[in-house]
């Protein structure tokens, strides 16, 4: 059984039909990416899965449970975590305080200490800057912090919304390396990206979204070589 099964969901913003039947499966241990242009519905899909939006039709099952209608804050306790678009660090809190917010859902002190060490190994810069106010970090560091904070809830499924947005190329590499590392340590990843090339280079499989629908679904390697994907998203003529 797949870890996450999204089956034909339709999500609306008022009368706007944003998702017109999206179906996605994510197997345990995978990196799956959703790529597509602006307004294709990638973020809406993530927000629907994480419970911030409720689909009007369709079903979502996570770890075998139907989670449609489960509020976002409860899904954190089911060990599903999301790093929102635009990073969303608590700008006025320090790095340390941000990370503390991340393990809000947990009680196991030993596990928390272990995970904090893990985040600091993954992002050594966060250790250096633990006393610094998050709003003063660079964009890349904020992305690292947001990712690290999500990891503090010890998720089995980590969803990232546009982690490369607005970052310098060298930092994009660093962030993606960290994502691969997190995945190797056993966390399943669902990654939404506009930077299709980067996303496909680390993912196992990918879905291509267009105006609220999935137009393509294949192994990442194959998608990279797909003519349509190359034209539309990879800038290859």
């Amino acid at each position: 059984m797949a870890m996450l099964e999204v089956n034909d969901i339709h999500t609306y913003y008022g009368n706007i039909h944003a998702l017109k039947g999206i179906s996605i499966t994510v197997e345990e241990g995978e990196i799956v990416t959703l790529i597509g242009a602006n307004g294709a519905g990638k973020t809406t899909t993530l927000r629907t899965i994480s419970g911030l939006l409720t689909p009007r039709e369709g079903s979502i099952s996570y770890l075998g449970k139907d989670i449609v209608g489960t509020p976002a804050h409860k899904l954190v306790y089911e060990r599903m975590a999301m790093v929102p678009e635009g990073r969303g660090v608590f700008a006025k809190l320090t790095v340390q305080e941000n990370l503390e917010m991340g393990h809000f859902s947990r009680e196991d002190k030993d596990g928390i200490a272990r995970d904090l060490e893990r985040v600091f190994t993954l992002f050594p810069r966060m250790k250096e800057r633990r006393k610094q106010v998050a709003g003063t970090l660079s964009g890349g560091e904020q992305q690292m912090l947001a990712t690290g904070r999500a990891m503090m809830s010890a998720p089995r499924l980590l969803m990232l919304d546009e982690p490369s947005m607005g970052l310098a190329p060298v930092l994009v590499d660093a962030v993606f390396d960290a994502i691969v590392e997190i995945n190797k340590e056993g966390t399943t990843i669902l990654l939404v990206e506009q930077n299709a090339l980067m996303a496909l280079s680390i993912a196992n499989r990918g879905y291509v979204l267009q105006t609220g629908q999935i137009v393509l679904h294949d192994d990442a390697e194959k998608l990279k070589n797909n003519e349509m994907v190359q034209k539309a998203y990879l800038g290859v003529d």
Binding site: L52, K74, P84, G88, S153
Partner: peptide, 24 residues
């Protein structure tokens, strides 16, 4: 308290607070 931290997180960013597992 824990509730105080929830308030603080909510004040800063409601969406992220919810994503941290806080019941808004």
């Amino acid at each position: 308290s824990r509730l105080g931290r929830q308030w603080m997180a909510m004040r800063e960013d409601e969406d992220v607070a919810e994503a941290m597992g806080m019941n808004l």
